[in-house]
Amino acid sequence: MSGLTFVDVCSGAGGLALGLERAGFEPRLLLDEDDDACRTLRTNRPRWNVLQADLLDFDPSEHPESYDVDLLSAGLPRVRSNATVGRADSRVEERLLEATVYLVHAIRPRAVLIENVPGLAHADEYRPFRDFAHAELTHLGYEFSWFVVNAVDFGVPQNRKQGVLVAVEQNRSEPFRPPEPTVREPRTVGDALATSMASRGWPDAARWAAQADQPAPTLVGGSKNRGGADLGPTGAKRKWATMGVDAHTVGNEVPSPDFAWDPALGRDGMVKITVQQAALLQSFPESWEIAGLKTARYRQVGHATPPPVGEALGLAVAEALDGARAVTAAG
């Protein structure tokens, strides 16, 4: 069946929305507070209805198109870990999770999809949110699934685990089943970026790609309030170094023909990943344009849900909703 609709909040660069579109969903409204993110969405999908607004201030009664939808989706900013418990913005991240659940009360979608850190699905530190969501959504008649997916299982050249909440209205759904992996062998960084690395005539591109023979560590977008663009924490930087990549910064362009790649020399002898290449590691299409300056662009890419993951989740939700519609139609 077709004709499934969704509202997407905290849309960012549009990875989740793009995946849902591929799964057959049509967006009614996409919401994000960031100017660059909204420009990214409008540039790539001019027909999408993009609203620049803070989720905490969003009033759906002023946007009737947000009602009567099949799905409310949210790829929210990552909630705090134990290492970041005193951060000023950590409570904002929690409030966005809560606001998404309260938005379900207002618009009553037939299904809800929230994506965040893997611990959201099972870790003790996130139990208060799970209990809150369970109490609120069970009261409204939704059935729950909490689970973890890894983007590498869906053809994304990156080990990126995500905690997922899917809730579907009891009286409308077939049993929801989390998506099964779509690939058997992980895609490597070298496979994903070999063509890009060679695009300016760098003769060592193939040799580099052969060394970059594993998926990328999780890309981390960072916060607006702290630091510049890099490829992640210390452990991730070490992993990148084994692939001959300097992960302490993000490059401006791919290597030129005269670049001497020699990781034994340290960072000066390593390649740098560009924002466009980071987007390829998130499995955005090459044509997807990211708006803004370099750090803002990388932040959007690093925070995104890889589109193949969004597609797999969307297909799983659609199967539950379409199964219910088929049963209803047959009856």
Rank of each mutant, 00 (worst) to 15 (best):
S256K: 14
F144G: 02
D230C: 06
A304Q: 04
V104L: 13
E93Q: 14
D54G: 13
Y298H: 10
G141N: 11
F132A: 12
P263K: 07
G201Y: 07
L137T: 13
V164K: 04
H122K: 01
D59E: 11
G163A: 07
D268W: 02
G163M: 03
L140N: 14
A216N: 04
S73V: 06
P215D: 02
A135T: 13
A241D: 13
A151K: 01
V69K: 02
H303V: 01
E253N: 08
L72T: 06
A53G: 06
D36W: 12
R39Y: 00
A205Q: 03
N225P: 00
S11D: 06
R45M: 12
D68E: 15
Q158W: 12
R184I: 14
V92K: 14
V245T: 02
P128F: 07
F58P: 03
L120R: 08
G163F: 00
K224G: 15
D35Q: 13
A318Y: 04
A264F: 00
S223D: 09
H63G: 05
P263F: 07
C10L: 09
R299S: 05
G232N: 07
L137H: 11
S283A: 15
P233D: 14
W208R: 03
V149I: 10
R200Q: 06
P64C: 13
F25G: 06
V92D: 06
W202M: 12
A192T: 07
D213K: 03
L280P: 00
P263N: 10
M270G: 01
V112S: 07
R22K: 09
D68T: 01
G323S: 07
S223W: 05
V168Y: 09
M243K: 08
P257V: 11
E115M: 13
R78T: 13
A133W: 06
